[in-house]
Simulated assay, not measured.
Amino acid sequence: MKRKLFSLFCAVLLTVGIFTPAGTPAEAATTYYVKVTTNSLNVRSGPGTTYAIVGSAKLGQSFKYLGVSGGWTKINFNGTSRYVSSTYVKKYSVSTLSTTSTAKMIIPTKGTLTQKYGPASGQYGYTFHNGIDLAAPRGTPVVSAAYGKVIVSRNYGAYGNHVMMSHQLNGQTYITVYAHLDRLNVVTGQTLAKGATIGTVGNTGNSFGNHLHFEVHRNSYVYSSSSPANSINPYTMF
């Protein structure tokens, strides 16, 4: 009887959300540091030799980077903002993953669904629609569906102005496609946060009215005009 009551209690806790699944990678955060490259480096209260020396940093020590002012680098020194000569420090970055109970994508623009994912009539040269179409006024912002890296940003072919991004969610690689854009706001190689603007809704390429064509592919980008190939229904990711 006690075992049954305990099982029922756990089920209730799961239902109301007190128990949550183990965290999974969701967003990457980049923090910048500087490393001292000389044997002894004066730490000053301000950006210049006229400011008082408040300490000394040793070769190989690292400090959180807070910015620059002229030829001086601002650092976190013992919990306080201080300055060192930029000549004798080297900047580097450290990326870490934050975790949440779920790692999902967001809808990349505000629009009306005009074509679903799935079988199509063949009217426009394809019998399977690999993504979704969201109609919206020209110039409506289009944002990154998840944290990731821009792997394509160009005007080419049926997609017209389009962006492709690579993402890591729950240990799985996904490729997202944002097509028929009016404007491209990003370049290949950029790393973007979830929700960062990548362009605006347009009517470029093989398009018949202002809308965003959005695709999600698992592992890599493989397109087929007659089958899903490795695309998946974007709505399963929101």
Rank of each mutant, 00 (worst) to 15 (best):
N233T: 10
V163I: 15
T188A: 07
P141Q: 05
A11C: 12
L41Q: 10
N185R: 12
T24G: 06
T140F: 02
S231F: 03
Q190S: 07
S56W: 07
Y235C: 07
N76H: 04
V222L: 12
N155W: 06
V84I: 13
L59W: 11
R154T: 15
G118Q: 04
T49D: 11
F6T: 15
S220Q: 13
N219L: 11
S7E: 12
Y223V: 10
G111A: 10
G209R: 07
R44I: 10
T50C: 06
H180E: 11
N42M: 12
A146H: 07
G111V: 09
F238L: 14
F63W: 08
T31K: 14
V186S: 00
S225R: 13
F208M: 13
N206Y: 11
S226M: 01
Y235R: 14
G46I: 11
S93V: 08
D182I: 07
N233Y: 04
F77A: 09
G157I: 06
P108I: 14
I18K: 08
D133H: 06
Y178R: 09
L184V: 13
A11N: 07
L184Y: 08
M165Q: 05
P47L: 12
N39C: 08
S144D: 03
A196M: 07
H180V: 13
S101W: 00
Y32D: 05
S98W: 03
M164P: 02
N210Q: 09
T87Y: 08
T191I: 15
G171F: 06
T102G: 06
G160M: 08
K104S: 14
Q190N: 08
T15S: 13
L184A: 05
F19G: 06
K74A: 13
Y83I: 11
R44N: 00
T37G: 02
A57N: 08
V187R: 13
R183C: 03
V12W: 11
G60F: 07
G111S: 10
V222D: 07
V201W: 02
V222R: 14
Y174G: 02
T73F: 00
T100I: 00
P228D: 05
G189D: 02
L181W: 07
M1Q: 13
Y174I: 12
S95N: 08
M105H: 03
N155Q: 10
K4W: 05
K194L: 07
H162Y: 14
K104M: 08
L41E: 09
R154Q: 12
Y174L: 06
S69Y: 02
Y124L: 14
P137C: 10
G148I: 04
F19M: 12
S56R: 12
P119W: 06
T50R: 14
Q61T: 14
Y33H: 09
L113D: 04
V201I: 15
F63R: 10
K58H: 02
A135H: 02
I18A: 11
A136E: 04
S98P: 01
T173W: 00
V36E: 05
K90S: 12
Y33L: 05
R82W: 01
V201F: 00
H162K: 08
A135G: 00
G23D: 03
Y88M: 05
T191V: 15
T127H: 02
I106E: 04
K4V: 15
Y178A: 06
A28W: 09
